[in-house]
């Protein structure tokens, strides 16, 4: 039964110790994802949403508990295997974009293809295509600093999806977009999800999460307090 799930977290904890204080950023999270799921995560600031994404993306290691991918615990993987997992299967949209400031929009997107065995020529083609799809055809050569917040966000999205990942972790992907753009991006994500992409999306926009996600969970002080209901 449990083996049906593609990705699973078991009693996942991530504590930070700062001097005498201990921050329980995640305090026992159990989540289950099937291939092709679209999971929405809502919750107050500081409730541990970003921490959860980092753990599932294999960027961070839990204090205790496990993240399982196709039945295998990420903690049993070598650093190199984790890198391969990120390079080939995972797309991440960071809350704060994290674009490389001295690269053009195009180079930022291309960089995502350095690590999944894409040939040089294909790299450029794929990056151009995604940027065009996101309405950035005339912003290819711009540096992040020369782009608006919304444009930067779209470059970050382009970078996350250009490699056709198996799972997309999106940390407030529409946080800087106007309504029209928000709708467009959300529709794009839904479309990709229809194409088989598994998505875990953190958002403040509960309505939208309800509309597009298959399920929505709410987090509170490092725990999932509500949800799992399928929409």
């Amino acid at each position: 039964m449990a083996d049906d799930f593609w990705m699973k977290t078991n009693n996942l904890r991530r504590y930070y110790r700062r001097g005498q204080y201990e921050v329980k950023a995640l305090d026992g999270v159990n989540l289950e994802l099937r291939r092709g799921d679209f999971l929405g995560i809502v919750g107050a600031s500081g409730s541990g949403k970003s921490t959860l994404l980092n753990l599932m993306a294999g960027l961070d290691t839990p204090t205790s508990g496990t993240v399982e991918l196709e039945g295998r615990q990420l903690s049993t993987m070598s650093r190199q295997e984790l890198a391969r997992y990120r390079g080939h299967k995972v797309g991440i949209i960071f809350q704060s974009f994290n674009l490389i400031s001295h690269y053009s929009a195009l180079q930022n997107v291309e960089t995502a293809l350095y690590f999944n065995d894409t040939s040089r020529r294909e790299r450029k083609e794929m990056a151009l295509m995604v940027l065009e799809k996101l309405g950035l055809a005339d912003r290819m050569t711009h540096r992040p600093a020369d782009l608006s917040g919304g444009e930067q966000q779209r470059v970050a999205i382009a970078r996350a999806i250009v490699k056709n990942p198996e799972i997309l972790f999106a940390d407030e992907p529409t946080g800087n977009l106007d309504n029209e753009n928000t709708l467009q991006i959300t529709k794009l994500l839904a479309e990709l999800n229809q194409g088989g992409l598994t998505i875990v999306m953190v958002t403040h926009n509960l309505e939208m999460a309800r509309e597009y996600a298959h399920s929505v969970v709410r987090m509170h002080y490092g725990r999932v307090v509500e949800g799992g209901e399928r929409g």
């Binding site: 890198a83 391969r84 990120r86 390079g87 994290n98 674009l99 960089t111 995502a112 350095y114 999944n116």
Partner: peptide, 12 residues
Amino acid sequence: GVLKSLGADDND
């Protein structure tokens, strides 16, 4: 950090 998140390993 970005390169690592995109799949760069320590050796890269």
